[in-house]
Design a protein around this nucleic acid. Structure first.
Lengths: 95, 95
DNA sequence: CTAACATATGTTCAACTGTTCATATGTTCA
DNA sequence: TGAACATATGAACAGTTGAACATATGTTAG
């Protein structure tokens, strides 16, 4: 169990960065390629690509190639659940 | 919405550290004072106290004083939900 | 084959973070 | 009141991290 708690912290570390959270949020509305995501976040391609790699390593997103482009998508619905509960916490906090 | 995503990242940042996750996990079984928590994690009192403060600032825990001791407890059940879903993700990942 | 495009990777550096040590604050009891 | 205890706070230092820049890899069209 102790071990799992370390893995858990590592997972949340991935959610604990605004760039990555914004990427995940963008992907909630469906798969997008790197260029689309760079534009959406108004960040350079390299920064986005680096962060997507971390999301991939944590199995939060999956990728497929289509021609020259790489399309990223959420890999399962845990992402949506986690974001949703997090949002609830933030909202209730403000009351 | 954009704003909320930054707050969300800040929330997950708090979960993204093994010391804090272990503290939250300890508190799942009920309120505990700082000494108990220091012993449980085998960390010095100061380190634990510093981390508890961050948990408090994010409204993840609440405190009450009883004599010389401060008893910490989870402030709501979002913590349990978030940990649970995170665990699911980790577990499924290993398949 | 090669030019143009899309994305990934390696490196560097400033900014941030967690722990430790020292000390301060607050509480109880004699 | 003051000693002993429990916890909080401040400062400093090492380790980590995200962004930027340069460059490499992979793909398509001509």
């Amino acid at each position: 169990m102790e071990d799992k708690l370390y893995d858990l912290a590592d997972l949340f570390k991935v959610f604990g960065d605004s760039t990555r959270v914004r990427l995940l949020y963008e992907l909630l509305s469906g798969e997008k390629n790197v260029g689309d995501l760079s534009d959406a976040l108004n960040m350079n391609q390299s920064a986005v690509s680096h962060q997507l790699r971390l999301l991939k390593q944590s199995d939060l997103v999956k990728v497929r190639r289509d021609g020259k482009s790489m399309y990223y998508a959420l890999s399962d619905d845990h992402v949506e659940s986690i974001i949703k509960i997090g949002m609830e916490h933030i909202t209730e906090k403000k009351k």
